[in-house]
């Protein structure tokens, strides 16, 4: 629950954004980044449905790799 996930913005609709991470799409609120001028293509850190910060593509990709490893380990355990 406390894990923030990097996602890429696909399109905007007011303060709401369609975002994607590793093929999974979600509706994300940009209400906390409303002064940051985020645009489609940008990467954001998403926590419980809200974008909390803009990040770079490199950081997003590094974190995705980490999650892949954690998920793989989690599957093995379950």
């Amino acid at each position: 629950m406390c894990l923030a996930v990097p996602m890429q913005i696909i399109r905007l609709d007011g303060f709401s954004a369609r975002c994607a991470a590793r093929g999974v799409e979600r509706e994300v609120s940009l209400f906390m980044l409303q002064d940051e001028g985020v645009v489609p293509g940008d990467f954001v850190l998403v926590h419980v449905g809200y974008a909390i910060q803009k990040i770079s593509r490199e950081d997003a990709e590094a974190t995705w790799e980490l999650f892949d490893q954690i998920l793989a380990a989690g599957d093995a355990d379950a």
Binding site: C2, F31, G49
Partner: peptide, 16 residues
């Protein structure tokens, strides 16, 4: 329930 990272979104929901 949550720490600052979760309560900020709750606060944003309230502000909306």
């Amino acid at each position: 329930v949550g720490f600052e990272t979760t309560m900020a979104p709750v606060a944003a929901l309230m502000a909306e």
